[in-house]
Write a protein that binds this DNA or RNA. Sequence first.
DNA 1: ACATCCGATGACACCGGATGTCATCACTAG
DNA 2: CTAGTGATGACATCCGGTGTCATCGGATGT
Lengths: 188, 188
Amino acid sequence: MGRWEPNARGRLGRAAMELYVERGFDQTTVADIAERAGLTKRTFFRHYADKRDVLFVGTALLTEVVARAVTEAPADLSPVAATTRALEAAAGIVQERPEDVRMRQAVIDAHVELQERELVKLAALATDLAAALQARGVDVWTARLLAETGLAAFRVAFARWIADNAEGPLTRLVTDSMEELAAAVAKP
Amino acid sequence: MGRWEPNARGRLGRAAMELYVERGFDQTTVADIAERAGLTKRTFFRHYADKRDVLFVGTALLTEVVARAVTEAPADLSPVAATTRALEAAAGIVQERPEDVRMRQAVIDAHVELQERELVKLAALATDLAAALQARGVDVWTARLLAETGLAAFRVAFARWIADNAEGPLTRLVTDSMEELAAAVAKP
DNA sequence: ACATCCGATGACACCGGATGTCATCACTAG
DNA sequence: CTAGTGATGACATCCGGTGTCATCGGATGT
């Protein structure tokens, strides 16, 4: 593979995370990351789109899982039930490594630029979710509405999970969040 | 005030918008903007946090309007009704200048960096909305849930309004969006 | 075993966004 | 008339991000 040590991408990713935690995201230059990984700045950008990208490589998996959960859900499931199921599947992935997730989120919460990227990734996830719902025959705008609001509920559940020090399963909080949403917006 | 022509900030903002529309956001350098405004690059950054900021100075008004709508709503209004009212108030502001809004949105939709900033601004709006709801006595997490999902519904209504070429009032679409949400997540 | 090719990396230059610093000018208060 | 204040210009600098070409090592084919 590479010319020197193997797994350049992995080394770069690890070095970046270490430095982000050690001294903070914007106290870390790309040159620092490359140096710790024993590579050059140019090589970093061959593996990651930008400095923030390191923290968001995992989201591709979420997209997969969400889309599959919707398409594999029983056909007689209501749109909102299918949405809930997809979000629970995503929650299942997220809660697998609580410590890593919390550390990563601490870094993100401390920097607006990282929140920007996270919101874009979640918006893309919502778009994919909406497309999957549409494929089930849900109306375009209903699908987008369910996807966007569902993901909003997920975000709140996630924030609560982080605030609760990740006690209890995130899946449970997601389910509760969707139920509370139904209760909160219900006609009196 | 200034040393030369007055209203440096306004001239910079106008020059920036013109150039973003004329040749695109990332084909425009800050030096270009400053030159067209008859000022220097350094002065641009004294008036705007960054190149994107020009497009988002108006959102402060939205925050005000949303917060006021919630605090001034009758005390017996349900949380979701207060939320809907706030979002309708925001829609009222947005739909006042359809052409400007559409042009601005076209620029934003063409550049991920701008979508990033927009999502952050909307997230901040959600936070303020949640705080206003909390001030009405709504539980913290219920407030956040309503604010985030309400704003998600607003985004979908806005996207639909843009897609519909801004025919019909945005306020109507927002109201419908909230009703459709209630219908979509209701227990069968 | 040898030559060849190809992908990954290094080296270097460069652009542009963003910031710090200091001088300078206009306006205002007294 | 002078001192002070705030906005601006001029200059230097850092760093993120990109283009370009050389170079190295492993894989491949004969």
